[in-house]
Design a protein around this nucleic acid. Structure first.
Length: 273
DNA sequence: TAAAATGTTGGGTA
DNA sequence: ATACCCAACATTTT
């Protein structure tokens, strides 16, 4: 399930084979993959466009073209690969971009939740997103202010892309554990020090995730190794790496949530009576 | 075997 | 503003 570090890994891997290439055409095996414009318009407009640069905003890949911008969201099961034309694409390669060097850029997506967008400005698609967690402008203070402005449990807030862009289920659980904060803790009850700890934890897990090329969970997404250092995610019943207490799994807003009941107490520990 | 679980986002309702 | 359910899907687990 690609989150920010996995998407960033795709971006970095795709730059070498794609930047400078011209898209000679696209094959839409499953036209509903195209969110905008119409599949017909998409195919017509993408032809002949040169890929100038590749970036990321939240969980979106952003391809700057010599006319317009192509965005891809991988959602649950999206996978991207560049291969020689003629080699057998996997059966879920629903959208295939043909390149001027005889290769193909394939968007495979078994569950078909992913989408591609072709727009003139990236903000048309990413405009609703919250701040970029690794951006210099995202300070501990900025996070603290945003937390205080809402009154929601931390976990769903971290998953809310309009609150903060790029964090998904895995990194949210990992960050909360690192920060020693309970997933159900209300956002407006955090002290400045706790907000700062959360800020640092979020940035640390995301940076580490990128360093390790993301996490490879199950049969989706391969190549990363962050899964080897997971502290709580998918480790229900196993001992907490910090204190040894068994990791617990609960449901928060229909999402599996993993935490250590000892390191992440429901309420702040009273320091002095 | 059929039902439930998985997990991102957006839309709808209360 | 927030909480909840559903829908979009394929595949795996119960």
């Amino acid at each position: 399930m690609p989150e920010l570090p996995e998407v960033e890994t795709f971006v970095r891997r795709l730059r070498a084979p794609l930047v400078g290439r011209t898209i000679t055409g696209v094959t839409l095996q499953w036209p509903r993959h195209v969110a905008t414009p119409s599949p017909r318009q998409f195919a017509r407009q993408i032809r002949g466009r040169r890929i100038e640069s590749i970036g990321r905003r939240g969980k979106y890949l952003v391809f700057c073209l010599d006319g317009g911008v192509l965005l891809i969201h991988l959602k649950m099961s999206g996978d991207l690969a560049v291969a020689a034309a003629g080699t057998t694409p996997d059966k879920h390669a629903h959208t295939v971009f043909h390149l001027d060097d005889g290769r193909e850029f394939r968007f495979s997506d078994t569950r078909k939740f992913g989408r591609v967008y072709l727009v003139s400005r990236p903000e048309e698609v990413t405009g609703h997103l919250g701040p970029e967690p690794l951006d210099g402008a995202f300070t501990a203070r900025a996070l603290g202010e945003r937390l205080a402005a809402r009154s929601r449990a931390l976990k769903p807030l971290l998953l809310d892309q309009t609150f903060l862009a790029g964090v998904g289920n895995i990194y949210a659980d990992e960050a909360l554990h690192l920060a020693g904060l309970h997933p159900l803790r209300k956002s407006d009850t955090l002290t400045a020090e706790e907000a700062r700890r959360l800020w640092r934890a979020i940035r640390r897990v995301l940076r580490r995730g990128i360093q390790l090329n993301g996490a490879s969970i199950d049969w989706m997404y391969r190549g990363g190794s962050f899964q080897e250092i997971l502290r709580v995610y998918d480790r229900a019943g196993e001992p907490c790496p910090t204190c040894g207490a068994p990791i617990r799994r609960i449901l928060v807003g229909q999402r599996g949530t993993h935490f250590c009941p000892r390191c992440q107490p429901a309420r702040r520990k009273r320091i002095r009576p």
